[in-house]
Each structure stands twice: as C-alpha cells, then as structure tokens.
C-alpha cells in the first residue's frame, strides 16, 4: 500500500533521513521507533507532503502511484492522513469545527455525518464538548480530538506521530485501546513512538531508525527480544 524507496530528506546540508526504504501492506500495523531526532517525524512529514522531497531523493509510492511532490491536501485526498506531532489542533475553533476541518475535502454530507458519529462513538468524551474551543480541552481530550479529526478524513492509511506524548499512564492505556480499535475497523496504521514499549506492544512490525537511517527492522515480537533494542529503547 505504501512504499518508500531509498528516501533522502535534507534540511540544508544536513540529511535528516538517509536511504530509507520501507513498505507497509494493506491492513498492517507498523511502528517506527527511534530516539529524539532519529528522523521519525521527518519521515512522516515527507510522506504526508509537509516536507518536500527533492528530485532524485527517492520515491514515495502510495496505492501504486508516486506521491512525492504532491501538495499535502492532494495526498490527504487519496486517503493518506497524518495526525501530526503535538496535535496541532485549531485552538480557537470549536471541537465540532475541528472535526469538520478533518473532513474539509469531503463532499458527501451523509458520509461526513457517519464519520462524525463513528468518531464520537470511539471518543465519547468529545460529545459533551462539541461547542467548546479546542484549547479548552484537557491534554487527553486534545489528543483524542486530534485522532478523531484525522478519522473524519476517512483515512485508508493513518499515520500517528507520538500520540502518547504528555499523557498519563492511564490515558496512554485508553489511547492504546482506541488505536487498536481503529486498526480492527480496517485502517492501516503507522505509529511513530518515542515510547518504544507502546509501539512494540501495539504494532506487528517495526522499523528502528538511528540518525536518519534504518538500523533494524522485524516483527515486533522479535524486536522486543533483540538485545540492542532492549538496551537502547526499553531500558532493560
């Protein structure tokens, strides 16, 4: 469904991502792990089009078509949605308007209503807050809204960037349940996490990035037992 072929992303002279290749099949749940600055977010931003991939710097193929060079909106319209790091909610739009922005490109009113119902079933906390401004929500609710907004775009492939950041262990648990549910409903997932334990627990396949390069990949059940992963990311 998604394939990165020998991808390079440079900021000025510095390369944030080097010769990265990875592939995600329909229905997969993949996690990308790595330390701060390893290139995880850059990779997601390159896929979603927020960061431009220059000519000759590799290829990003989604559903059989090359998408690098397209505007973020065009990529979103194809069903590839990113839930950005730090939530990036619209602080002065109401919760309902935030959700509607997720469905900005959709014209099917009925479908949008259906997605709204589904998102609110998944995150019932938001139901009572529909008319509150985004900034009035608690940290946990904000993260739920960020995910719900992403679902409003009817994603086939959803990329989550550090959704657990700043959440209490209890909320993290709840978030994990919700993410599993989204996957069960048939959405292909890429989860970027600094919290390696969470990523490995949820996903079935993992890529580990180090200094912008692929250091390791494999089934999460194998990665969990890998000595290097244990030492570097799980603190065991």
């Amino acid at each position: 469904m998604l394939e990165l072929k020998n991808l390079w992303v440079r900021y000025g002279k510095k390369a944030a991502v080097r010769r990265l290749s990875l592939s995600v099949n329909k229905g997969d749940f993949v996690t990308i792990l790595g330390a701060n600055g390893a290139g995880k977010s850059t990779t997601l931003n390159a896929i979603s089009g927020l960061v431009k991939v220059k000519k000759g710097q590799g290829e990003i193929v989604f559903k059989g078509e090359k998408i690098n060079g397209l505007k973020p909106g065009k990529i979103a319209a194809r069903g590839l949605i990113q839930i950005p790091e730090g939530r990036k909610l619209f602080p002065l739009l109401t919760v309902k308007e935030n959700l509607m922005m997720g469905a900005y490109l959709r014209k099917d009113r009925k479908g949008v209503q259906h997605s709204m119902d589904r998102a609110l079933t998944l995150f019932p906390d938001l139901k009572d807050k529909l008319n509150a401004d985004g900034r009035e929500l608690s940290g946990g609710q904000q993260q739920m809204l960020a995910i719900a907004r992403g679902l409003m775009a009817e994603p086939e492939l959803l990329m989550l960037d550090e959704p657990s950041l700043g959440l209490s262990p209890l909320l993290r648990q709840l978030l994990a349940e919700r993410i599993k549910e989204i996957h069960r409903e048939g959405v292909t997932l890429i989860l970027v996490e600094q919290n390696a334990r969470l990523g490995l627990m949820l996903a079935s396949y993992g890529y580990v990035l180090e200094n912008g390069e692929l250091a390791l990949q494999g089934k999460t059940s194998d990665l969990m037992l890998d000595e290097n992963v244990k030492k570097a990311y799980l603190g065991v």
Partner: peptide, 23 residues
C-alpha cells in the same frame, strides 16, 4: 461558510490546515 472555516483554521494552525486539504 467553508472558506471562512478554512481562513480561521489556517490563521491558527497552517500546517494542520494544509494536512487536511486547504491549499
């Protein structure tokens, strides 16, 4: 209106607005 929503959203958070399809 839809364009009004896009204007407010983009003023507040341009990256997220463009992620969801605002040009």
């Amino acid at each position: 209106t839809r364009i009004g929503l896009a204007i407010r959203a983009t003023a507040q958070q341009p990256d997220a607005a463009s992620l969801y399809g605002v040009s």
